[in-house]
Write a protein that binds this DNA or RNA. Structure first.
Lengths: 188, 188
DNA sequence: GTCTATACAGGGATAGAC
DNA sequence: GTCTATCCCTGTATAGAC
C-alpha cells in the first residue's frame, strides 16, 4: 500500500537529516522514530537493522545527487558552467555547511573511523561527482588531467566545508568560492 | 608520585590515539582502560568523566603542535620553508591520513555534530595553525591578505586529508602537495 | 592508586497483540 | 502496518575493599 511506502520514505528522509546533523552513530532509533512520529516497534517492520537504514539513506543520496547533476546538465549548456555549479555548492548550502559540514565528506569520515561495512558505498557519492567532473573537464579538452582536476575540485570543496564548519565563517566561503571560480577560467 | 603521573599521561596518550582512530564517541572507557592495562575502576581516579579526558587530550594536542611549530622555526630559516612544512603534513603523515584522516579536522567535525561543549576548544588547534601561518605570510610581505592565505592553506590540507581518507590514494596526496608547494612560490 | 562489584541509563533488537 | 512490552548488551559512573 501507499501508506507503507510513505512511512518507509519518511524514515529514510528523517534518518538522512539526522545522520547529517548528529552523525550516524549518535542518531538513535528513538530519535528517528520520534521524528517520523511512529513507535520504535513499528520501525523494525520497515528496517531490520540500523545498517539497513544507512544503506537506504546512501542509496537515496546517490539517487538525489544523480538527479541534481542531470538538472545541471539541463540548465547549464557549457561544461565550465556545470563545474562552476559544483564549486558553488558550499555557498549555495552555506547555512547547513557552517552548521554540519558536507553531508558526503562527514559521513565518509565517520564511517572510516567506525570501520563500517558501508564505507565504500558511502564513498560512491564521491565517485559519482568525481566521474561527472572528470567528464566535464574532458569536454573542455583536458582529457589527460581530467581525473586529477576532478579530485582537485572535490578536495577544494571538502576543505572549504570543513573549515567553514569549524569557524562558522561565511566570508571565508565567499572568498574561496570566488577564488576557485577564477581558477577555473584558466581551463575554459 | 611519578606512578600516578605516568598513568595519567598513558591514559591521555591512549585516548588521543583511540579518539583519532575510532572517533571520540565510539571510543569506550573499556577500550582506553584496556590499552593502558588498568581496570575501569582505576580509570575514574584519574578522570571523572569522558569529557574530562577529551579536554586533556585537546590540551595535550595543542601543546604538541606548539612544540612542532617551534621545531620548524628552529629548522627552517625562511617563512616559506615553514609554510611548506605545513603543506607537506598530509604527505609526512600519509599512512595515518589515509586510514583516519586529519586528527584536528575529524575531531572538529565530530564535535560539531555532537554539539559538544569542547567544540571551541578543539578548534583552538586550528586557530594555532591559522595564527602561525598568518604570521609566516606576513613575514613574506603579504600582511593584508595573510589571514586569508592562512585559511586557504589549512583548507587545502583538510580537503586533501578528507579525500585521501575516502579514496586511500597516496598518488593523489603527492600531486596535491606538489601543486600547493608550487602555488606557494608565487608568494615567496 | 589500584582493584572488584555493582548501579543505572540508553540503545538495538524481538515477540506478539491488535 | 502499527502498537506495547520486554530482553539483552554496552557504556558511563559510583562504592567500597585492599
Amino acid at each position: 500500500m501507499g501508506g507503507a511506502r510513505a512511512t518507509r520514505e519518511q524514515i529514510i528522509e528523517a534518518a538522512d537529516r539526522l545522520f547529517y546533523r548528529q552523525g550516524y552513530e549518535h542518531t538513535s532509533f528513538a530519535a528517528i522514530a520520534e521524528a517520523v512520529q511512529i513507535s520504535r516497534g513499528n520501525f523494525y517492520y520497515h528496517f531490520k537493522t540500523k545498517d539497513d537504514i544507512l544503506a537506504a539513506v546512501i542509496t537515496a543520496r546517490l539517487a538525489e545527487r544523480r538527479r541534481m547533476l542531470e538538472r545541471w546538465e539541463a540548465e547549464e549548456p557549457t561544461p565550465a558552467g556545470r563545474i562552476r555549479k559544483y564549486i558553488e555548492i558550499p555557498l549555495t548550502n552555506r547555512a547547513d555547511v557552517q552548521m554540519y559540514g558536507c553531508p558526503v565528506g562527514t559521513l565518509s569520515t565517520e564511517l572510516a573511523k567506525l570501520n563500517h561495512a558501508s564505507f565504500a558505498e558511502a564513498n560512491s557519492v564521491f565517485t559519482l561527482f568525481r566521474t561527472w567532473l572528470r567528464d566535464q573537464f574532458a569536454l573542455l579538452g583536458h582529457e589527460s588531467e581530467a581525473d586529477a582536476l576532478a579530485m582537485h575540485v572535490i578536495a577544494f570543496s571538502q576543505g572549504v566545508a570543513t573549515l567553514a564548519n569549524a569557524f562558522r565563517d561565511e566570508g571565508f566561503i565567499w572568498r574561496e568560492v570566488k577564488q576557485m571560480s577564477d581558477w577555473l577560467t584558466a581551463y575554459e
